[in-house]
């Protein structure tokens, strides 16, 4: 018993070190600097936070980012659910393992490389436009790159897997007999999905939605590289504060606002959908 306790504390050390040094300390530091004025005086002020609400460009960018993040999360669900269902319930486990591997590969390559992959695909002289022109379907290239469309594609592509996996996990625990029983009782395919499959996978859907929403709202590369002039992402504002105007205190305040408001959005979404966070963890 005593030995067990010792082992417990011993193993806790790396976790605590990680948490304290890499997560808590930097956040505490940022938290304090977010209340310091840019002039360098040693006082505390709410100025950095007020600027966010006073200057339209900041809060409108934030609203824009949140709206798009919610939209991308919804799209990720719509695209991922059939994929997860197909992998778990339709094809044999052997084939599913292979396809799962295919889904994982982009993750190994890294986000930057996959995003440049999309640049190559979607550009005016990219693979898609060139083939469409070659096939005679279009005469002039369709502008896809540097638009909201390409940005959404990029965000979707890098976050989809994090929706697929939690949904797959919940679907795996769904007894096929329940689907058959519903069908036996006269339910149409749509009803089976609506009243059996979706409710059963709800924890996975919520789980995946939280991860995707957080990933998307905090992403920098896809909006920056694939997005157009109008695709202003809030992370770019934070980036600018830190690295263009060197206003670290302002950047810290924006960082905290992003954390607080996105957490609040998730809380509100959970409330609205009648789900509980504890249920998600199971």
């Amino acid at each position: 018993m005593q030995d067990n306790k010792k082992a417990f504390y011993f193993l806790l050390i790396p976790v605590l070190l990680w948490l304290v040094m890499l997560i808590i300390l930097p956040h505490v530091d940022l938290f304090f600097s977010s209340f310091k004025p840019n002039s360098g005086e040693d006082t505390y002020t709410l100025e950095n936070y007020l600027i966010f609400f006073q200057d339209k460009i900041y809060w409108s960018t934030f609203l824009y980012t949140t709206a798009y993040a919610i939209g991308v999360t919804l799209l990720a669900f719509i695209v991922s659910f059939p994929v997860a269902f197909y992998l778990v319930k339709v094809i044999s486990p052997k084939h599913a393992a292979f396809l799962m591997l295919m889904l994982l590969i982009p993750l190994w390559i890294g986000e930057l490389v996959t995003i440049y992959g999309w640049v190559i695909l979607l550009g005016d002289k990219g693979a898609i436009n060139e083939s469409l022109i070659f096939l005679g379907i279009i005469d002039t290239p369709i502008t896809m790159l540097y638009t909201n469309f390409s940005m959404i594609i990029g965000l979707l592509y890098m976050s989809m897997l994090f929706m697929i996996i939690p949904i797959m996990t919940t679907l795996e625990s769904l007894d096929d007999a329940q689907i058959e029983a519903a069908s036996d009782l006269g339910a149409s395919k749509f009803t089976i999905f609506k009243s059996i499959v979706i409710p059963h996978s709800m924890p996975g859907i919520i789980n995946g939605s939280i991860i995707v929403f957080m990933l998307v709202i905090g992403d920098y590369l896809a909006p920056n590289i694939l997005g157009g002039k109008s695709s202003l992402w809030f992370t770019e504002q934070i980036y600018n504060q830190f690295l263009s105007t060197f206003n670290w205190n302002q950047g810290a305040a924006f960082g905290f606002l992003l954390l607080i408001i996105s957490s609040a959005t998730i809380w509100a979404a959970l409330r609205l959908s009648g789900q509980k966070l504890e249920k998600v963890e199971n």
């Binding site: 329940q178 058959e180 029983a181 006269g186 009243s195």
Partner: peptide, 15 residues
């Protein structure tokens, strides 16, 4: 769903 038969499943398959 269109057959006049119903099943009681081995796993019961209650919802």
């Amino acid at each position: 769903e269109n057959r006049p038969v119903n099943i009681v499943f081995q796993s019961l398959a209650l919802f």
